[in-house]
Structures are given as C-alpha cells and as structure tokens.
C-alpha cells in the first residue's frame, strides 16, 4: 500500500485501506536517486516516468525519490536486490561493489570521446555487463550518463601531470581512481563528498575530479579557481530495477521498461551535451580559469602503471572494449 495519491484531498490521519488490487489498479514503481532535481539523473527519471506512464496507458506509475531520501547509492542497490526499492539511477562506481568487472569503465583514458563510449556501452560489451547484474538480483535496463571527469583545484593552473604533482585532490573511494591519481603524483584523498565540500572551503583538500555538471551543481567556483579538461575517465550511470519486480511484470511491460530506459538514456546524454556549454559559461562568469588543451598524451603516459596493475583483473574485457570502439 502506498500513500501516493494526491495529498490535498483528505486529512492524512486515517489508516490506509489495504485494498485488494483489481486488475486495473496501476502498478506503482518507486525510483530513487541521490542527486538534486537539477541533475541529469533527475532529468532522466522524469523522462522515464513520462514515457512509461504514457506507453502503459497509466497502468504503471513511477514515483521519483530524489536527494537520497530513501538511501545512498549503495543501499539503493541493496534495496533493489531485496525488493524494498524498485528502481534507481545509479553511478557506475557503487555498482562495481556488486559486480567488480563493471569497474572496467573507470579505467583512465579508456574512451577518447562520448561517441566511443556510447558505442561500447550500447553494444555487445555493455549489454553483456548489464545482463551480468542479474547474478546479483538486479535488472540493468540501460546505461545513462554521468560524463567525462575533469580536474578542478584551488592552487594553480594544471596543463601537464607535473602541474598536478603534490595537490591534495579528493577522489572517490575506489582503488582505480586512487591509483590513477597516485600515478600522477597527486596526494589522492578518498573522502565522502559531503565532508569534501567542507574541506574545500578550509583548504584541507585542494581539488576534486568530477564531470562539469557536478562542478556546476555544487558551485565549485566558490572554492576552486582552476578547471582542466583532463577527461581522464568517462563515468557511466545505469538505470537499474529490482529483478524480483522486473520478473513479475508481463512481457509487454518488460519490453516497454527496457526500450523507454534506452530512449531516455539517450535523451539524457543529449541534454547533458546541450547543458554543458551553458554550465561552462557560468563557471567562467564566476571567475574560473578553464584549461581546454591539457597535455593528454602526457597524462596517458603517466597512468600506464594503472593498466599494468589492473589490466589482468578485467581479463579480456579491455581488449573487447578496444575492439568495439
């Protein structure tokens, strides 16, 4: 039972009636994500809601829970495994805790462009990994996008790895990222994001690496003056569903879910590309200096040890990806 109907009509003091659902009662699906309502994930969730409700003639209703109200990404995934959460738009990093191979996408400089990434993610390799999520009771519907990650810092302009040397940079708690930045000579500080936001203000941490939309959403220009287009890693995100729930849907609805997820993922990628120019302008207007021509080959050279260390861990996956690009 859910208190999901229009709330203004009735006083909320009565107990919810536990009605036996007639055939026409819509299925209510609760979709959670951990970012705010200006974020691409929310954009994706909204489009997904619209199209699903439209194509199922209102037989499926989607309720969106932004801002992590029903859990952080790790617990959202767990909730989907158990069936206490129905759906989520989730960043690739935490998914790798459940399916280690999917961390392959976090490898530095794996993709040179968005187009390359889409080709691989939407192709055979991507589909294979999405399907593998079923082993952990998750139905992977489609890959959507967080985006290429770039470096920002408060200390100095960064064009080459040598410029980045010694900077205290917040990274995600993820061995590949940590080793990537260690290979660049950076003092890589794994820290929870909220803690990092305070640490930027006091200078306990001097930089971070995230897609432009994150630098924009969190107004990082307040503490960081320098942005470098390092594009060191492309972060996908996934539209996930509880496998338990997916299996309970009829074939037609299942197909709608998958196709709408794929369509809206593409819409989100396009939207991110459109928004990026506007966001960069805002960053510039707020005094950020943007280095668009970083010495990428030098960065690629510097992170080679990361491939030596992790390459074998992913078996033939890296090769498959390179072939599919």
């Amino acid at each position: 039972g859910g208190a999901s109907n229009e709330p203004k009509n009735e006083a909320p003091k009565t107990e919810e009636p536990k009605a036996e659902a007639p055939a026409s009662e819509p299925i209510v699906i609760k979709l959670g994500h951990t970012v705010n309502e200006q974020d691409p994930y929310h954009y994706n969730a909204l489009r997904f809601k619209e199209l699903v409700e439209q194509r199922t003639n209102g037989q499926v209703k989607i309720e969106i829970f932004p801002n992590g109200v029903i859990g952080d990404e790790r617990t959202l995934i767990e909730g989907m495994q158990v069936g206490t959460v129905d759906m989520g738009v989730i960043t690739n990093g935490p998914i790798a805790n459940f399916l280690p191979e999917i961390a392959v996408f976090e490898m530095p400089f794996l993709f040179a462009s968005e187009a390359e990434a889409y080709k691989v993610l939407d192709g055979e390799v991507g589909q294979k990994l999405l399907n593998k999520l079923e082993q952990v009771n998750i139905k992977g519907l489609a890959f959507t996008e967080r985006g290429f990650r770039n470096l920002t810092n408060s200390k100095r302009p960064v064009k080459t790895p040598a410029d980045a040397k010694g900077l205290k940079i917040r990274v995600m708690e993820n061995p590949v990222y940590i080793d990537t930045f260690k290979a660049l000579g950076v003092n890589a500080v794994p820290m929870a994001w909220q803690e990092a936001l305070t640490a930027f203000q006091s200078g306990a941490v001097e930089g971070q690496e995230n897609p432009i939309n994150v630098a924009f959403a969190f107004k990082l220009y307040e503490s960081h003056k320098y942005l470098t287009f390092t594009r060191h890693s492309y972060a996908p995100a996934s539209i996930l569903m509880s496998k338990k729930l997916f299996d309970s849907l009829d074939k037609e609805t299942q197909e709608i879910m998958v196709s709408v997820a794929k369509e809206t993922a593409q819409m989100t990628r396009d939207w991110i590309a459109d928004e990026m120019e506007k966001q960069l302008q805002v960053l510039r207007d707020n005094g950020m200096e943007i280095e668009e021509n970083a010495d990428i080959p030098a960065f690629q050279e510097a992170v080679k040890p990361v491939y030596e260390k992790y390459g074998s861990k992913f078996g033939s996956l890296i090769e498959e990806i390179n072939k599919a690009k």
């Binding site: 767990e78 805790n97 280690p100 009771n137 708690e173 061995p175 794994p190």
Partner: peptide
C-alpha cells in the same frame, strides 16, 4: 537474510 544476499558485495576502499 541480508548477509546471505550480500555474498558478492565488497566494500569500495578495503575490498
């Protein structure tokens, strides 16, 4: 029950 379902999950930093 939860532990039984989490045989695969590893922690991000310590693995």
């Amino acid at each position: 029950q939860m532990i039984k379902m989490q045989v695969f999950q590893i922690s991000p930093a310590l693995s």
